[in-house]
Amino acid sequence: MSESTSDTASNTVSFGYENVSPEEKTRRVGEVFSSVAKKYDIMNDAMSFGMHRGWKDRFVKRVKPQAGENILDMAGGTGDIAFRMADRGANITVADINQEMLDVGAERAIERDEAEGAGSLVFSQQNAEEVSFASNSFDAYTIVFGIRNVTHKEKALKEALRVLRPGGRFYCMEFSVTDWSGFREIYDLYSMHIMPRMGQVIAGDTESYRYLAESIRKFPRAPQFEAMIRDAGFVNTKAEIILGGAVAIHSGWKV
């Protein structure tokens, strides 16, 4: 039984390894990111040994942002992806459900030196399941390491399709579990035991990072999530596998 079917039947969704009501998950995810916002990028460096920077560069190369394009970067609060795309001249709307994450991104936008010819940046508090923007508004929709925290992923994917213009492209990068034997066991040990301890040392927060580790293990593997993207109405879908599935870049197009 798929996660979505099981959730519908029991009227609960997963919050890490717990089953909670959809409202409870939304509230608790909000608390997690309010807690980690100030240390989020530092923890990304520590937890991925800096590899997340290369993954994000690779992701933006796949998106191919163009000067003057309008791109919605969902769950992009701290601006890591948005800044990379704005540097290529695209106009980015940075959306996040969590205001604390958006505040961090806005502060960073003020502090960074804008490159000549850079596109614009707008920060907007949005729920990925109920985006306030009009249909057919954006040339591309990106979401990086965020969709696994959305309560109803199918709704978020449908909203992504709705706000894209015909011919618009969808790109998502997300963690899951790896299929590489040997590495899988090391990855499990690291994510479930070392990551929460690092969260305590660096951010003073064990439980939020325990949830983040559990949410990775609960997220669908790349083939299953690609199928969800197709079911939402996207075509020419593709999953680019990194580290045996520990990370995947998903893409699709709106026709």
Rank of each mutant, 00 (worst) to 15 (best):
T26G: 07
R28D: 03
R28H: 03
V29G: 01
G30E: 00
E31G: 11
E31K: 14
E31P: 11
E31S: 14
V32M: 09
V32H: 04
V32C: 06
V32G: 04
V32Q: 04
F33H: 05
S34I: 11
S34T: 15
S34R: 15
S35D: 15
S35M: 13
V36D: 06
V36M: 12
V36H: 10
V36W: 05
K38I: 09
K39S: 08
K39A: 06
Y40E: 00
Y40S: 01
Y40M: 01
Y40G: 00
Y40C: 02
Y40P: 00
Y40F: 03
Y40I: 00
I42A: 15
I42H: 14
I42D: 15
I42M: 14
N44Q: 11
N44C: 11
D45A: 00
D45E: 03
A46H: 10
A46G: 12
A46M: 15
A46C: 15
A46P: 12
M47W: 08
S48I: 09
S48V: 11
F49P: 03
F49A: 10
F49V: 12
F49M: 12
F49T: 09
G50L: 10
G50S: 09
M51T: 09
M51G: 00
M51K: 07
H52Y: 06
R53E: 06
G54W: 07
G54K: 11
W55D: 02
W55P: 01
K56N: 03
K56I: 04
K56L: 05
D57W: 02
D57K: 09
D57C: 02
R58K: 12
F59V: 04
F59G: 02
V60E: 01
V60Y: 01
V60A: 02
V60L: 02
R62L: 12
V63Q: 04
V63W: 06
K64E: 14
K64R: 15
K64T: 12
K64N: 14
P65I: 04
P65Q: 09
Q66P: 05
Q66M: 13
A67S: 14
A67R: 14
A67H: 09
E69H: 11
E69G: 07
N70A: 12
N70T: 11
N70D: 13
I71P: 00
I71G: 00
